[in-house]
């Protein structure tokens, strides 16, 4: 049973790379913490895509399993991070991440 496509592995990797870099770019340019988290999700998806692609290359389930672990990680991260966002919005009355710089050395 195949979907009968024939894509070079590099192409999928390039797609994952581009998505990852878009996410990284987003993290770097945005000051709003919600957008940063959103970009982070994008980066994680790109990683998952690379894993699934590598798994598909050998027709093994391991790639998908790694994707599921990333999924669990993302879910945990989002739960805590959004809790922090809510706290940040309350304490500083802003979502500007540059304002929350009290943890500097």
């Amino acid at each position: 049973m195949t979907t009968a496509i024939n894509i070079p592995l590099e192409h999928v990797f390039f797609l994952a790379l581009i998505l990852f870099l878009i996410g990284a770019f987003g993290v770097l340019i945005r000051r709003n913490i919600i957008f940063m988290l959103l970009s982070l999700e994008l980066m994680m998806n790109a990683c998952g895509l690379a894993f699934v692609a590598a798994g598909a290359r050998w027709a093994e389930p391991d790639g998908q399993i790694m994707f599921m672990f990333i999924l669990a990680l993302a879910a945990a991260e989002v739960a805590v991070a959004l809790g922090l966002v809510v706290q940040l919005a309350r304490r500083f009355e802003t979502l500007d991440i540059d304002r929350a710089e009290e943890l500097n050395g």
Binding site: T3, E10, F13, A56, A59
Partner: peptide, 20 residues
């Protein structure tokens, strides 16, 4: 740099879409 790395992957690697 990443792209250069990715291109190092063996050329013939194709994904045939075998369903897992």
């Amino acid at each position: 740099v990443f792209g250069f790395e990715v291109l190092q992957v063996e050329n013939s690697a194709k994904i045939e879409g075998q369903v897992v």
